[in-house]
């Protein structure tokens, strides 16, 4: 337990210090959301209808793009070797790293959501619904994205390839995230059904992600 909390604390610390990049994700999120009205026009009624979708797409891209170097940095400086050799199971270490990433990069996105909701003319209920679905859904994005980050280490390239690998995996999360938000705003579906599925997706990815990432890292050793 000490080992895992030490890993979580280290990763958060690095993310928040000079050269870290946790807050750049929020800036990216903000920029993507600001770009949308220039493409679709400043019609507030239209924006508030598209709002949840825009916020979800922005959060999806922001949380996946910052995942790129989740394992790469540790691989490049040799830390990954020591983590692999250690007495902590690699699966748990992967989960700890993903948790740290979510806390440092995912949580700020959710905190920023109300401000961005204002820009998109979302009312209190709609903003709350989007923030709640992001809270339930972004762990799934981080924990599935982690598989891509592990593959990026194995393949020695990250960036766009990782995005291409991982984005299709995140489609279910996007579907139920936006569906739950829309259900809360306009109906006619109940909020509960898509939201429960969203939570289930997150829980499943909490299990699958670390195992897949650890397996990919083990096979990618060289």
């Amino acid at each position: 337990m000490t080992a895992l909390s030490a890993l979580v604390r280290r990763d958060i610390r690095i993310a928040l210090r000079v050269g870290g990049g946790a807050l750049i994700g929020v800036l990216f999120f903000l920029t993507v959301v600001v770009l949308m009205p220039f493409a679709v026009g400043p019609d507030l009624a239209l924006l508030s209808r598209l709002g949840p979708a825009i916020l979800w797409l922005g959060a999806l891209l922001a949380s996946l793009l910052t995942l790129d170097r989740l394992f790469m940095a540790d691989h490049d400086d040799g830390s990954l070797d020591l983590i692999t050799m250690s007495r902590t199971p690699l699966e748990l270490a992967c989960a700890a790293k993903a948790l740290a990433h979510w806390l440092a990069a995912g949580l700020p996105l959710i905190v920023a959501t109300p401000v961005l909701g204002l820009l998109l003319n979302l009312d209190m209920v709609a903003t709350g619904a989007v923030a709640l679905t992001l809270l339930a859904g972004t762990p799934a994005l981080t924990f599935t994205g982690m598989i891509g980050a592990a593959l990026a280490v194995t393949l020695h390239r990250g960036g766009l390839l990782m995005a291409v690998l991982v984005l299709p995996l995140s489609i279910p999360v996007l579907i139920f995230g936006v569906a739950a938000s829309q259900a809360a705003i306009v109906g006619p579906m109940t909020f509960g059904a898509p939201f429960s599925i969203l939570c289930a997706l997150s829980l499943v990815s909490l299990v699958i992600g670390p195992f897949a990432a650890a397996a990919s890292l083990r096979h990618g050793l060289d």
Binding site: R10, G19, D77, G78, D81, L82
Partner: peptide
Amino acid sequence: GHRDALKPAL
């Protein structure tokens, strides 16, 4: 190893 497993930010 050759790589020293150190984080410059810490």
